[in-house]
């Protein structure tokens, strides 16, 4: 069973994407709070993380991303954002995420599925056990 964590400040999006990820055979935990996210990361192994960069808490999306990378280096990390900001983009690039989703475009059901699959495929090639 593969675990995924979903962090977004919009609950709607969390629910929606949860359904879709479960359809892809992931066990999903969701939260809107960065702090809770960090706790969840500690609890069990994460294989996939979808993190919105704009969180409302003191713990930012980037913090969550870095935490996941530290704790579960093999995890696939995808950053999401409603607004493409070049500065933010660069930072996430430095952080080394596997994908960058732009809302609402990349989050449409069809598009979403395709993209996830593609990213997972790529990672398989990189000696990744999935």
């Amino acid at each position: 069973m593969l675990n995924a964590i979903l962090v977004d400040d919009e609950e709607d999006i969390c629910d929606f994407l949860k359904d879709h990820l479960e359809a892809l055979d992931f066990s999903v935990v969701t939260t809107v709070s960065g702090e809770l996210a960090l706790k969840m990361i500690d609890q069990k192994e994460i294989h996939l993380a979808l993190v919105d960069l704009r969180l409302l808490t003191a713990v930012t999306g980037l913090d969550v991303i870095r935490c996941v990378q530290q704790k579960w280096p093999k995890a696939v990390v995808i950053a999401m954002s409603g607004y493409v900001d070049i500065g933010l983009r660069q930072e996430t690039g430095k952080a080394g995420v596997h994908g960058y989703f732009v809302k609402p475009d990349d989050v449409q059901p069809s598009v979403f599925k395709e993209k996830i699959k593609m990213i997972l495929e790529e990672n398989k090639k990189k000696k990744f056990v999935l």
Binding site: E10, D12, F16, R54, G82, Y83, K103, P104, P109, S110
Partner: peptide, 21 residues
Amino acid sequence: AQAIGHEVNNPLTTVLMRVDT
């Protein structure tokens, strides 16, 4: 622009996602 982008895109995502489904 950031605020707008965010304020509009988030609900828009929901609308699109739900309608799409």
